[in-house]
Design a protein around this nucleic acid. Structure first.
Ligand SMILES: [Mn+2]
Ligand SMILES: [Mn+2]
Ligand SMILES: [Mn+2]
Ligand SMILES: [Mn+2]
Lengths: 240, 240
DNA sequence: TATAAATGTTAGGCGTGCCTAATATATCCG
DNA sequence: CGGATATATTAGGCACGCCTAACATTTATA
């Protein structure tokens, strides 16, 4: 079995797709299809010939071998599955769906593509009483897109995956939190770490001065007074 | 704004993730994290320094600049969003989800990731009456995995995206179909195309000899007699 | 058939990203 | 302090995948 680079997979896939036209496939066709120049195509074809995936007679046209057909078809199948999922399930426009699919097809695992195919099948075959969820999702998308005045809700990915981490200077007095990350300038970071403010430890906000500067916190029984800039460099997650 | 290669994005992301430990980030850490040797790390760091995304003093440790922090965080955010979708929605095991996410994060578009985040949020917030669909999907997966005796149903991707194309020699007499693709050996392909069997045309199966060889078909009013090997090279899609 | 146009190939170069081997610096510890 | 050890850097090389320029071959056309 051969393992092809992303680039070579694209060449094989291109030959497959161009073959669908029912015309002979030539160097120029591939170059245009993939937006590369002819010498690049010729170089790639040499490799594919050496691997036994295509036949190519000098100055002639190109054909996939039996092994090459299988390989190209597997790439193309991934492409179609991903594109269909993006377009029909997620509601992404066709051009973006195709572009993303053709990039992802080379690095996604077989098992994940298969699971996505299962998802598509499920969405298509789930009984009607349970089915409105997909329509509901598309409504949800439409409403979000309409209400989002360009930029608002830009951090949806973060909201969706975060453990709701915020900076230590935002914690009100009396509350506890766990340190997630210590950022900030080198000197500040060093000082904070030296004081025992390291990821995983629990901190309790003891007192906050009027302007939020300084703040008193308790770490492992020790009282510490932090400047606002220091507290602002500590990412914490409120527990509870 | 900088556009980084997949490799450089991984270096930036690695620095971010290693920063989460709360310890200083060093060349060795990055090398181990990304499974590359130190000289590779040093080379990459030089590029990131030149782009103003990190600071790195000789023989010292490494820090993301403000711009670098934004960039790394965006990569990491994609990673987390994709991994969460794969694991929690599709039910893929954590290791595979993480591996695929860290490959895809570099080539998927922002808009697609955002739409995936919307899907996650939707799945988490959709009212309970509409909600059983996700649980139903997970049941569907479990049943499929259990019933699939290793290999059966391997073509789910194909089933899900295909237009149900089959070979011409499988069409019963009297039925019509559309040509989707002409494959096969060069000489066979050439002959078929010359006879007018090209993608898009309608063919009607006229008569099938006892062993399926030869078959008579009608293409654009012309009667043709095809050997089984020839008919087997024509991919068609039954219409209706 | 002769010439022009289109297409394909070769040669050579460049950027990226990885490696190994050798060397330089920092850190640890007796 | 001084050597042993850990870590970082440089130098040099290789595979890949793209490019341009120059040249070869095929195909179209007069
Ligand atoms: Mn592709
Ligand atoms: Mn593709
Ligand atoms: Mn990655
Ligand atoms: Mn990642």
């Amino acid at each position: 079995m051969h393992t092809l680079s992303a680039s070579l997979e694209d060449y094989a896939e291109a030959i497959w797709i161009l073959g669908l036209r029912g015309r002979v496939v030539r160097v120029k066709d591939i170059g245009e299809f993939l937006s590369v120049k002819s010498p690049s195509v010729v170089g790639a074809l040499k490799v594919l010939v050496a691997k036994g995936l295509i036949t190519h007679e000098r100055y002639g046209y190109i054909e996939l071998s039996q092994e090459g057909e299988v390989l190209a078809w597997e790439v193309y199948r991934k492409h179609k599955t991903l594109a269909k999922f993006f377009n029909e399930i997620l509601g992404i426009d066709l051009a973006t769906a195709a572009r993303d699919a053709c990039a992802i097809e080379h690095c996604v695992s077989d098992s994940t593509v298969k699971r996505i195919a299962m998802f598509i099948r499920f969405a298509e075959t789930v009984p009607d009483e349970q089915a409105p969820w997909l329509a509901a999702f598309h409504d949800y998308v439409r409403e979000s897109v309409e209400s989002n005045q360009e930029g608002a809700g830009d951090d949806l990915c973060e909201a969706v995956t975060s453990e709701a981490a915020i900076m230590l200077d935002m914690i009100p007095a009396g509350r506890e939190a766990n340190v997630v990350r210590v950022a900030g300038r080198k000197d500040i970071k060093r000082r904070l770490l030296d004081m025992g403010i390291i990821p995983g430890v629990k901190v309790r906000m003891e007192r906050v001065a009027p302007a939020g500067d300084p703040v008193d916190v308790v770490v492992k029984g020790h009282h510490l007074s932090l400047r606002k800039a220091e507290a602002g460099a500590v990412m914490v997650e409120e527990n509870g």
